[in-house]
Design a protein around this nucleic acid. Sequence first.
DNA 1: TCCACACGTTGATCCAGATCAATATAAATA
DNA 2: TATTTATATTGATCTGGATCAACGTGTGGA
Lengths: 244, 244
Amino acid sequence: MVATARRIQQACSHCSVAHLCLPYSLDPVEISRLESQISFDRSVTAGDQLFAQGDQLKALYAISKGSFKTAVVDANGLEQIMGFYFPGDLLGLDALGEQTHQCTATAIENAAVCRLPFHQLEGLLTQLPSLRSRLMRLMGQALTDDEQQLLAMGQKNSEGRLATLLLNFSRRRAMRNLDSTTVYLNMKRADLANYLGMRVETISRVLGHLQSQGILDRKRKEVKILDLAALHTRAGSTAWVADD
Amino acid sequence: MVATARRIQQACSHCSVAHLCLPYSLDPVEISRLESQISFDRSVTAGDQLFAQGDQLKALYAISKGSFKTAVVDANGLEQIMGFYFPGDLLGLDALGEQTHQCTATAIENAAVCRLPFHQLEGLLTQLPSLRSRLMRLMGQALTDDEQQLLAMGQKNSEGRLATLLLNFSRRRAMRNLDSTTVYLNMKRADLANYLGMRVETISRVLGHLQSQGILDRKRKEVKILDLAALHTRAGSTAWVADD
DNA sequence: TCCACACGTTGATCCAGATCAATATAAATA
DNA sequence: TATTTATATTGATCTGGATCAACGTGTGGA
């Protein structure tokens, strides 16, 4: 058990996003209870699904490399991209309520994840109040994120929504100690458009507009933020009442 | 302790929405641990706030009578109505993550709530796995509800969003064993419009249109659903591509 | 009961962003 | 490498729903 704990600590100590991650927050004694069930750096190919809507909850996944999208499909067949996820993010929390995944998680590019078997975690939940509150906090954050997105969808115009997304990606890069003046839009325009409730053409035009204003500089999927303050202003602009 | 448990059971047995409610799911021994801290049927006046965004989490509230709205305000001062809540619904779950309320809950009309002090509940969480999973399930439902709303906002036009809301209210009335062919829009048009991401004028027009099609019949705030199937069709209609 | 004011509805006009169309660029396959 | 196919951009046009304006209607306080 000590050997396992050490193995996990080593794995985490080499992981650039350990400070954001669930297993990292367990102490060695706690980790030893997960035995050797956690699998580190399982590689995932672009397009692969970690889990699908309706699947029974078997594990949570901590992203160590690459990026993912989650999507739900409703009774009418309408698909909605629910979020984009990067290293350090935990996937599968939406299944904690019904023990069934409520969305499908797909790799946007080649990626790697740490797999945390849920029945092991669940056993720890009763014994470790710290783990329970950690998970509750993460669910609370997921709720807050959804609510921020709802606010953007309801109150902001296209420019405001796109600016909000760029700032969101930038902030999350900062949390991973990466250059927050650059963000990477690795997902397809169609996914971005679906997520933001607009059309691919509008995405192109708004990005072009922000570039022509000197707020952004684009090179393929890489977007450099040249004027953070201006981007914040655009992000705050309400729907149908531009403020400049 | 036994007397307290009996008092609670009596209170719950007279409550028409007990089957939806959190304290109801505790057995007498568990309830006795909450001592006499739960206050039943605290009356709340229209316009009163149960809690405000930023407040420390002190209690959860189970609605026994009346209805509430929750709203968040972002850094730019934009307000978004996040949801409407009816008897049997639990308010305050959004605070479980950060121990701080993430939204403001306001009574839409005169109402009554059962107050569940959180530090009592929290003590029970470690001892009662059933309570923990009940709360997790409720948080999971809150997540799913937000995601359904995001889907509606991103993929549906005004008619689809309003039809979706009417069906949602109808379904929730069915859960309370009330006539699900009638729903009551007791909130102000402005709140409804904000929640649905549209203008009050559009709400009026869409309701008028649905009435002229014989799908609804309106008498003030009371809306009778005459053609459920048609309403479902309208609810499934996507944005910008009407399907009739 | 009446009055004042907040709220809801209806009509006319306008515009952000969808839609349609054509082209350019990147990725996949041979 | 060339060739095909998927994805992204740019232009022209159209429209759902916002905006502006005017008018009903309901409610709470004196």
